[in-house]
Design a protein around this nucleic acid. Structure first.
Lengths: 132, 132
DNA sequence: CTTGACCTTCCAGTTACTGGAAGTGTTATC
DNA sequence: GATAACACTTCCAGTAACTGGAAGGTCAAG
């Protein structure tokens, strides 16, 4: 398979696939004309990568997961640990965004949004300092 | 004020403050020895920037907000629009993370995490392909 | 007069790609 | 067989928003 077909079947842009080769996540064969030649197994790995990235795993996580994926003697505990760490990170990020969201929504709702210069959003952003 | 003091009072790292000067968000004066010399007004701007960044506004948003902040004739509608756009972006991000989180939590909870090689997390990541 | 804290600039690295240029290979049409 | 359209190649640069570190100048204290 050429890269275009793999891109279509895996859902990853060709650019991204080349990048993944650059950083050593995959190592497709080469034809005599220099074109990359992908096996079904490469396609599987790329689909795996796409799913893992969509679930928020970092590239380094993916590298570790791929190694475990290919190691038939791995323990599922290793995988679970990586997944759990990632889950904690995601939870933290959600909490942070939620609090940002609440503050911002509060500000937006009390701003009249008219043509006058008084704006509670800017007032709030400007505060913080000044009060002892 | 020197940069160290401003860093402490604004809560922003000195590196970040220099970076903000680089990209033109602030323009502190200079002393004859080359040191930056910050006014109270610079400190206010930096605190403003810190708060806005913490609320998820991009640097370009901040640039626009700063211009509005300094324009006494601005309309609060402009500010509100920027804030609302940001709110939508945040909501989308939260929804995305939430769905990631749910999938991942499901996988984690059904993985025994023992020393055996069968792991539902890897199985799920590997799937997706193969099914017609 | 030296030590150490603080300041300066500049260069490089981070994350995970993405865009674009310049050149080669393949395929379809006339 | 020429030509056009398109796929593929590499390489360079850029994104966002900083962060780390090297090499060197300045300043206050002891």
């Amino acid at each position: 398979m050429n890269i275009g077909q793999v891109a279509e079947r895996s859902g990853l842009p060709a650019k991204t696939i080349r990048y993944y080769e650059d950083i050593g996540l995959i190592t497709p064969q080469r034809l005599s004309n220099g074109y990359r030649s992908f096996q079904e197994s490469d396609l599987h790995k790329l689909a795996f990568l796409g799913r893992a990235r969509a679930l928020g795993f970092s590239i380094e996580d993916c590298r570790a997961l791929m190694a475990l994926y290919e190691d038939k003697k791995r323990a599922s505990a290793d995988v679970k640990r990586i997944a759990q760490e990632n889950l904690v990170r995601i939870d933290e990020k959600i909490a942070q965004l939620q609090s940002m969201r609440d503050t911002l929504a509060g500000l937006v709702s009390c701003c009249k949004g008219d043509n006058r210069p008084d704006c509670p959003i800017l007032q709030d952003l400007a505060e913080q300092l000044g009060a002892p």
